[in-house]
Design a binder for these strands. Structure first.
Lengths: 215, 215
DNA sequence: ACCTGAACACCGTTCAAGT
DNA sequence: ACCTGAACACCGTTCAAGT
């Protein structure tokens, strides 16, 4: 075959072949994210994404094996965005490990509040077997590792208790994930709604994580 | 042509079941729970529940306004079962408040492991507005209050840190809920699967909650 | 190679009609 | 009062056919 032949740019293909979508795969993911934000998880169907992009309902099957594959791609995107936000917050508070951890957790909660439906796709059971999507697993691991790095640095600085960083990270992740999910489901502390109270509750919960329940 | 030979199952159903179902509402909830356990959340449809009970697909609408109403009833049932299990564990360890709290949390995790799909209905977004289902809210509050009671008793015994019991309970609930959800989604600590490791992880996470991350 | 359109088996929901 | 069956507008998925 001709290894020398350059592939046409996407603009070129769009002009010469309007029949073919420039990058249908990326467009479907984008459409899925928009549906998620505007209409919620129930509206995120393959057919709706195809409709939004302007292709037939069967076109997506050229790029995704099934609905789960689209959801996995969207979830992967979510983990990357989450990692970026957590790391950005983490970078801003390098001086104090406990505050750094707290702000990283706050970034997680902020992501949850900003993209509740996206978070639900990332952790819901619509993706039956996450292990079947290597890119998704990798993105999830990167997010987890961002937390592990913060723990490890804090331990080196002598400001976080000793122990396997992965185990501590799992515990912290569970806590902040639980806070996030209950928050977006309006189920954190029944009878204590209102975002001011909720903010306080999250902060105090994260601090309690540091000091412990022991008197 | 086939009028002479109806399918055996429908014929039997027509003869054994009265025209009016004894308690269709309860039967549909029961069927829903069975579907949830046997086939998962995606299979829990109004039509499938009706099929399982042996009524037409429109019969459920006499007892539930819509699919969400059935889900809410099933979720409510779940909160009641969860409360019972948490309280039962709590009763067994009255002597030591910290252990009592730990075992109550373990009961929560056990419920999650035993009924993962049920837990997801209880906290998922299929029930768009939980507040619209007073029985569900009440059942959720009872579960939460079981935790609050344990905290309060522990504080009275001087073995749990001071602070508003509701706020402490919210924090603990978030933690144990996060552990449960990540666990049933096989996402607690990527690369650390296997139920033995997971058990250890849960235990150490709950103990960490008591002692704190502070060195 | 990439996309379309018909087709199939499912849904939730509604409503006139039957018992 | 309670349930049925047809009907409608949706799905996911497949596949022969078009460009």
């Amino acid at each position: 075959m001709s290894a020398e032949r350059p592939s046409p740019s996407s603009e070129e293909r769009a002009k010469t072949r309007p029949y073919h979508h420039a990058n249908l795969r990326a467009a479907l993911i984008e459409a899925g994210l928009a549906i998620l934000a505007e209409e919620g998880g129930a509206a995120l169907t393959l057919r709706a994404a195809a409709r939004r992009v302007g292709v037939s309902h069967s076109a997506p099957y050229r790029h995704f094996a099934d609905q789960e594959a689209l959801l996995a791609a969207i979830a992967q995107e979510g983990f990357d965005a989450l990692t970026a936000q957590v790391e950005e917050a983490s970078e801003r508070f390098r001086a104090s490990p406990p505050q750094r951890l707290e702000e990283a957790c706050m970034a997680y909660v902020r992501f949850a509040r900003t993209h509740p439906n996206h978070l639900r796709v990332m952790f819901g059971d619509e993706i039956r077997n996450p292990q079947a999507h290597p890119g998704l697993v990798a993105a999830g691991t990167r997010a987890f590792n961002a937390l592990v790095a913060i723990i490890r640095d804090g331990q080196v600085a002598g400001q976080i208790v000793a122990g396997r960083p992965q185990a501590l990270a799992a515990s912290i992740w569970a806590h902040v994930h639980g806070l996030s999910m209950l928050l977006i489901g309006h189920r954190l502390a029944p009878g204590l709604s209102g975002s001011d109270n909720e903010d306080e509750l999250v902060r105090s919960s994260l601090r309690l994580q540091y000091t412990g329940l022991e008197p």
